[in-house]
């Protein structure tokens, strides 16, 4: 079994898909880095002063002002208090929050990429995993070996999981190395706020706490890994069901893009939340971003993704083991 996985993993790598993904990242990350650098520079110009310490001090004071207002809801007060704490930390530790280094870039990159960009890369990686054996004609060679079919498929699946892990590793390393050229390589210990919870319309800040950035990154990448695997698993099913690479990849790309479009077009359509592709943005829960569709939280999204993955894998196995190979 171990040998089979090893073997399949190298088929995956050798197909140059991973190379293409690395190339895509190599082109896009510098662009994103430059975009972010531009934004930071613009913000600085608008404030009219390059002394970020003065700006931070004023921001803290403004927020303290807001705190003293009696019209402020208590849950916002707690959030502002934490914000002040965060900014005071920047000030005390001489960290410029507008140009805070490569780890922050990685965090923003993964948060932005999790619901569309990463899934697309995963689809590129996974959607032809089995179908390419059909189009390449190698499926017969594969199935005439004295190994049960389910074992072959399982080893392909494990290889995919490893491939996705490697892809995220490459994303992290490239993101760090490239953005660090401009932003510097420091900032692993910057405090990041997490623990926001949504209940109906309200933001619950009772459990908000500060974690160091390295831990936050670990968690964010872990969540990205999970949603990438869910996409990978569904693509895996598509590659079993559809025999041509073009159609399985096309179908999966359409599904991923449609999922991200739908959340923006029809956030009021509540039943959307049972669709896997709506639930890919897991880092939103970590960052406390407002969730567009009502009734979604982390356990819910994890459950939806798990159920879809489970059904996909069952269908994939049934279809693969029962299929007659005629081509």
């Amino acid at each position: 079994m171990f040998n089979l996985v090893y073997n399949e993993y190298f088929k995956l790598i050798r197909k140059k898909r991973m190379f293409v993904i690395t190339l895509i990242l190599l082109v896009l990350i510098p662009i994103f880095t430059y975009a972010q650098y531009k934004t930071a520079k613009n913000a600085m110009e608008q404030l009219g002063t390059s002394d970020w310490r003065a700006i931070l001090q004023q921001q803290i004071v403004d927020q303290q002002n807001r705190l003293s207002s009696s019209r402020l809801a208590p849950e916002w007060k707690e959030r502002i208090r934490l914000n002040i704490k965060q900014q005071q930390y920047y000030l005390d530790h001489d960290i410029n929050p507008t140009a805070p280094g490569a780890p922050t870039f990685m965090r923003e990159f993964i948060e932005g990429a999790i619901s569309l960009f990463l899934p697309l890369l995963v689809v590129v990686l996974a959607a032809d995993l089995v179908s390419s054996e059909h189009s390449g004609g190698t499926i017969k060679l594969l199935l005439t070996r004295p190994v049960p079919r389910w074992k072959i498929l399982l080893s392909k699946y494990f290889a995919l999981l490893l491939g996705i892990s490697l892809m995220l590793l490459i994303t992290a390393i490239l993101g760090y190395l490239i953005s660090g050229v401009i932003f510097g390589y420091k900032g692993w210990n910057i405090p990041v706020l997490t623990g926001f919870q949504m209940q109906k319309e309200h933001l619950i800040t009772d459990y908000v706490h500060i974690v160091p950035q390295w831990k936050y990154l670990l968690m964010a990448f872990g969540l990205a890994w999970f949603s990438s695997i869910a996409v990978g698993t569904i693509s895996f099913m598509a590659s079993v069901l559809l025999r041509s690479t073009a159609s399985s990849m096309g179908a999966m790309l359409a599904a991923v893009v449609a999922g991200s479009l739908l959340t923006q077009i029809a956030p009021n359509w509540n039943e959307l939340r049972y669709i896997a592709f709506i639930n890919l943005g897991l880092t939103d829960y970590l960052a406390g971003n407002p969730i567009l569709v009502e009734g979604m939280n982390l356990p819910f999204s994890l459950a939806v993704l798990s159920v879809w993955s489970l059904i996909a894998i069952i269908i994939a196995f049934i279809a693969f083991t029962r299929r007659d190979v005629t081509t």
Binding site: S165, L168, T194, G195, V211, K215, L218, M219, A220, F221, G222, L223, W225, F226, L282, Y285, L286, L298, L302
Partner: peptide, 12 residues
């Protein structure tokens, strides 16, 4: 990544 995922779920 698996550890990170578990950490995130635990934390949240």
């Amino acid at each position: 990544l698996f550890i990170g995922f578990i950490l995130a779920v635990w934390d949240l």
